[in-house]
Computed example of a mutant assay.
Amino acid sequence: MAGTLLSPPSGIPLERLMQVATERGYTAQGEMFSVADMGRLAQEVLGCQAKLLSGGLGGPNRDLILQHLVTGHPLLIPYDEDFNHEPCQRKGHKAHWAVSAGVLLGVRAVPSLGYTEDPELPGLFHPVLGTPCQPPPLPEEGSLGAVYLLSKQGKSWHYQLWDYDQVRESNLQLTDFSPSRATDGRVYVVPVGGVRAGLCGQALLLTPQDCSH
């Protein structure tokens, strides 16, 4: 999903991703419990740049992520998936990956140049493609309900808007390997230090190989 959001879009089939991930020892069943391995896989197969963020999605990482999404590049996030695909907190027992393709920002004022109001939803503004636009001021951290990530999980048919703080909290509590997986008789690749070391508080910023941002 992230490959289709890069420029140029990647036409790499899922089977190729699985083949390389298996050959490199990143996965056994399709699982991916290491953000670092996911970054290496993306760089090799999608031909993109991958920047690993650690320490959670708050603080200075928050501005990096929002600026990255405003620029139009995808974000990969491990999180606990609820029954409706939205973020929840299950200590990593429901750990999955999601891709974020954009961001919805609640701002006090829209910059005058480079934006157009949605014809059907008053108060919703979009950047005008091909027009230089000044990024809007980012909402301050702690501004409740001001930032939503346009995100999609692989089993979902549709993108959803997820509250940024809920995503951050879900990502920050990925600590344990699922007991049901541990007893299902299958082999999984889990990094040294377990789920906490491989996923907790981490995310990936993907950019095209020739992008200087």
Rank of each mutant, 00 (worst) to 15 (best):
A203I: 07
D163M: 00
G194D: 00
T183F: 07
V45T: 14
L64K: 15
H158F: 09
V107Q: 01
D82V: 03
S212D: 14
V190R: 10
I65T: 02
S178F: 03
R40I: 00
P139F: 00
E15F: 10
T22A: 10
N84V: 05
R186Q: 14
Y159N: 08
L52Y: 03
R108F: 04
Q173A: 09
P132R: 10
L75I: 08
L174R: 08
D82N: 12
L75V: 03
Q29K: 11
V103M: 02
A182M: 11
G72M: 02
L124I: 05
S54F: 08
G59K: 13
P137Q: 13
V128G: 01
D82L: 02
P111N: 06
P8H: 01
A203P: 10
R16L: 06
G194N: 10
G58C: 10
H96M: 09
Q29T: 11
P87C: 04
G185I: 03
F83R: 14
Q19N: 13
P9T: 02
L104Y: 09
G185W: 06
E15S: 15
L144G: 13
L75S: 07
A95M: 04
T22G: 09
T71F: 04
L204W: 02
F125R: 01
D37L: 09
K152N: 10
E140D: 12
G3L: 07
G39Q: 04
V20A: 07
S170K: 05
G47R: 02
P119S: 09
Y188I: 08
T22L: 08
Y26G: 08
V110K: 03
L105V: 07
L124K: 01
Y79W: 07
L76M: 13
L46N: 10
K155E: 15
